[in-house]
Design a binder for these strands. Structure first.
Lengths: 257, 257
DNA sequence: CTTGCTTCTCCCGTTACGTTAGGTTTTATG
DNA sequence: CATAAAACCTAACGTAACGGGAGAAGCAAG
């Protein structure tokens, strides 16, 4: 009935470690029922129950400090706390899901193209990481409903778009320095615009808006890390300028002197 | 072009903290391009790019040590690592989902019954926490396919069963000490059997098996924490014995002398 | 020259133990 | 009963990624 277990037996019986038990003793979370004069710890069946409580609450994500409170206050009214805890866990889950989504996109591109330039990789990851912030930012430009539409694209479609963009950016980086007016370069810009149209649904105004915000975007690298270096950026800017002039769009960005 | 940012400016621009930047410097993860004679750190645009890499990889769940490797080895061949990382994240996600499920069950019962005895609560949580281990254990008793069926009950059904069980156990705990042969007590046991039948699909053999494993179960508290105290357990045992005898089932457990 | 802002270098605190190191006690065996 | 082996003890450092504070020094403006 009133069995006594040495710390080793107790650890085995309960599936914890000796070290953990000693630690719980140290922080006054679970003290053995009996300590021999020589300092050896002996646990009882009652301690098993206590430990089970600890294990269960730990599983639910509580810190040992919280658990200590619960066990000592004895009220055992977890209800509010459980709801809060669930909130926490749901948030963590959402975070992880976002991370997994980012990994999926990255893997998809890697499979598709073997490897990817690090800067392009970074800006891809960032797009997913900062999704919510980007949404907020966009809401300052266009009506909220339209923003939601933009972000409601299916996963496969997004993966495809990302892969296309990554591929295009790689080619653009390779073409840096070439004559911005050449057919090849203008073709790349055309590809870029095609993707933009595909995403934005052909709204030229928005593209125009975004181009005018260029400076603002570049000045906020935490919100929009660029996949291009400053020199690349400048070259792309020139090519874009040519493209837009040919299309008859007024360009009000600063002239790259 | 070659702008220099003080640590404060840089922190604001990149969305990190001064402390983090100093830490990255300390562990040789990101050193400022320039350090003034007086020891002040100045960062360049190039450092922004480096930091963005760090932030992106951190988002994907890599440790700073891993990130350091990636950045220094410069191969930038993340492909294998990304797949591994995804595995990790999927596991974490599954863990969290299990925790959330446990919290849901607990909340459901709390809503249903206001409060719950701590021991019952514990064994409920444990059922979810140890699900996989319980499955394995059961596979030693009955064919694998049947085990899968047992665990393929819908969430709502499981919640309902758990709530019913919790309610019943509460009443049983209240009835401890009463005459095991009384109609009331036997009614509770009958309720218990009803639930068991509901879960196990009326296979009396399995119930019999489980009863014969009683001792084994009680001796492994890490696998099966009991919602009852030893005294309660003994009382329930007696009532169960009466019940089974009346039903004409042979009882080969040890007589509670 | 003083005021006030920014930055600097220590250094301790955080979580839940894992992992030695070095010493003592209990138990098993000859 | 002596001794060896197993189990146990305390003390102390290490972990990851910073947060926060103390006290001192640099730097621009009035």
């Amino acid at each position: 009935m009133a069995e006594k277990y040495s710390i080793g037996e107790f650890a085995k019986k309960t599936g914890t470690t000796i070290r953990a038990l000693r630690y719980y003793d140290e922080i006054h979370l679970l003290k053995p029922t009996l300590v021999s004069p020589s300092g050896r710890r002996y646990y009882s069946n009652n301690d098993i129950i206590q430990l089970q409580k600890i294990v269960a609450l730990k599983f639910l994500g509580y810190s040992l400090e919280k658990i200590s409170e619960f066990l000592h206050l004895k009220d055992w009214d977890l209800k509010d706390s459980l709801a809060f805890q669930k909130q926490e866990m749901v948030q963590r889950k959402e975070h992880i899901e976002r991370v997994i989504r980012a990994l999926d996109h990255a893997l998809h591109i890697m499979e598709d193209q073997g490897t990817v330039n690090s800067s392009i990789f970074i800006s891809l990851i960032n797009n997913i990481q900062m999704e919510d912030e980007h949404k907020e930012w966009l809401k300052g430009l266009i009506p909220e409903s339209k923003v939601e539409v933009l972000y409601n694209i299916s996963e496969e479609k997004q993966q495809e778009l990302n892969a296309r963009t990554a591929f295009l950016f790689t080619k653009m980086k390779e073409a840096v320095g070439q004559n911005p007016e050449s057919d090849k370069v203008q073709g790349l810009i055309q590809d870029y615009m095609d993707i933009a149209e595909d995403v934005l649904g052909g709204s030229l105004e928005l593209i125009q808006d975004l181009i005018n915000r260029q400076v603002e975007i570049e000045d906020d690298p935490k919100l929009f890390p660029s996949p291009f270096t400053p020199e690349e950026e400048e070259w792309v800017g020139k090519a874009m300028e040519v493209y837009l002039k040919r299309k008859g769009v007024i360009f009000d960005g600063n002239e790259t002197s």
